[in-house]
Design a protein around this nucleic acid. Structure first.
Length: 271
DNA sequence: CCAAAATGGACAG
DNA sequence: TGTCCCTTTTGGT
């Protein structure tokens, strides 16, 4: 379930498990065999997330870039690690724990120049202290593209994915189809602040929970719902179900290749 | 057994 | 805008 909060958790987890000590690295699947050989026996010095990208730095300037994409997952466990099951692209083994990476869109060694190119094209990450939401606003405030599409553009905002996109627009009562330049400055500030808050909760809990206390199933007298993204949400993947706030049917539509969800009553189109 | 879907993004045109 | 690539899980035959 990789949106940005997952990647920030993974970075912290890597440091906790492996930081400062020599690691074993291998690629049981074989597709990162060369890279794993370079890393094997080296010390992990740094792990950080930029949006949905995970960067692991090792001694001697070696840097691994990992992007989970849609399917990538990590599993962790205590040593001794069992025989790899499934297609394990990269296994790191430390003193007491191991990490298996399966199905990433990217797992590669990068040169410093390539890292810079990568970071330069990423927009503001709500989970990073060095994020620049002003720069994002300069793009959004001039764009004819819908705010729903802009929020998924990683060169504008880096980290939120389809779930946070849908949920923050719902919470702020913003029509997904609203062009970026039709947003007010205040609306953008509220969206940004909400993303920061929601995603910090996500890092702390490992789930995406966006429902305010007054709208929880308990408070509304409904049965609790837990979908496989792990948390309680207002509209994501709730097409055809009643809006948790007003009861209107949640709608869905394909937008730039992704499923968008919203409540037409709580997020009315401007007229 | 097979098909479809999934929280992403690169690339072609 | 569409196509393709990562892999696992789920549901239907």
């Amino acid at each position: 379930m990789p949106e940005g909060h997952t990647i920030h958790r993974l970075a912290a987890e890597h440091l906790r498990m492996f930081g400062g000590r020599a690691l074993r690295a291998e690629s049981p699947q074989g597709r990162f065999a060369e890279g794993a050989r370079r890393l094997d026996g080296r010390v992990l010095t740094e792990a950080e997330a930029h949006g949905k990208h995970l960067l692991l730095r090792f001694e001697d300037e070696w840097l691994v870039h990992i992007h989970l994409g849609l399917y990538g997952t990590y599993t962790f466990g205590p040593v001794p690690a069992p025989e790899p099951r499934g297609l394990v692209r990269l296994r790191l083994t430390g003193v007491s724990e191991f990490a298996d990476l399966r199905g990433p869109a990217a797992c590669e060694l990068l040169e410093p120049g390539e890292v810079k190119v990568l970071l330069d094209r990423l927009g503001a990450d709500p989970l990073r202290a060095d994020a620049d939401p002003e720069r994002a606003w300069r793009r959004i405030g001039r764009s004819r593209t819908s705010i729903a599409a802009l929020l998924m553009d990683q060169s504008v905002v880096a980290g939120p994915g389809n779930v946070y996109r849908a949920e923050v627009l719902f919470r702020q009562g913003v029509d997904p189809g609203l062009p970026g330049r039709a947003l007010t400055r205040e609306q953008w500030s509220a969206i940004w602040a909400d993303l920061v808050g929601l995603m910090r909760v996500g890092v702390a809990t490992g789930r995406i929970d966006t429902v305010r206390p007054e709208h929880t199933p308990e408070a509304m007298g409904r049965p609790p719902r837990v979908d496989d993204h792990g948390g309680e949400v207002y509209v994501y993947r709730r097409a055809g179900l009643p809006c948790l706030v007003c009861g209107t049917e949640v709608r869905t539509e394909r937008l730039v290749g992704r499923n968008l969800f919203w409540c037409p009553a709580c997020q009315p189109a401007a007229r």
